[in-house]
């Protein structure tokens, strides 16, 4: 239900974005920059988001175990797909880059078919950089246990600052 709602929201939002071909300017501190093959921007070919903008998007939540946490942890935030739709992204792959320049390349399907989430909150609280914040790419290890391996651990980027959409 929640998933369906998100989809509808995302579609509406995407449509709205396309119609406007523009995105609101962030008012707070910029936490995410989406670049590459997108058609909805708010700053010189890039789409910049502050935390409020991200949290205004439809949210999802899942409680999972990860190799980086000692117990089951609840993450919440928008779906990666929701953000990509919001910026009218179209591509075959994504490069997700962290504050320390760590980056991972993932196929676009990871956003399309998997319910990957760009988590903004851990156990209900915003995440500081010290706590692997502000953004953390969370794969659905609970509903798709086959993802629980190094391949997806490496794609689970934290301290994200930028997402580049590859053509």
């Amino acid at each position: 239900m929640k998933f369906m709602l998100s989809l509808i929201f995302a579609t509406l939002l995407g449509w709205a974005a396309h119609a406007a071909a523009d995105l609101d300017k962030p008012s707070g501190k910029i936490v995410l920059v989406v670049t590459g093959n997108i058609n909805t921007t708010n700053n010189a070919g890039a789409a910049e988001f502050d935390m409020d903008m991200l949290e205004a998007l439809p949210q999802v939540e899942r409680t999972i175990e990860t190799p980086w946490t000692s117990e089951a942890t609840t993450f919440s935030g928008p779906r990666l797909k929701t953000i990509l739709d919001a910026v009218g992204a179209k591509g075959s792959g994504l490069i997700v880059t962290a504050l320390n320049d760590y980056s991972a390349e993932l196929p676009y399907e990871d956003a399309e078919t998997l319910e990957t989430m760009l988590a903004t909150r851990m156990n209900g609280d915003l995440m500081s950089v010290r706590e692997k914040g502000p953004l953390f790419l969370i794969y659905p290890f609970d509903t798709n246990p086959e993802l629980f391996n190094e391949k997806y651990f490496a794609r689970s980027v934290w301290q994200i600052r930028e997402v580049e959409v590859l053509e």
Binding site: W68, T69, S70, L99, N100, V129, R130, K132, W158, Q159
Partner: peptide
């Protein structure tokens, strides 16, 4: 970032 690394080592 360094601090967060520490927590990864400590908590994970």
């Amino acid at each position: 970032i360094l601090y967060s690394r520490l927590s990864v080592l400590a908590n994970s």
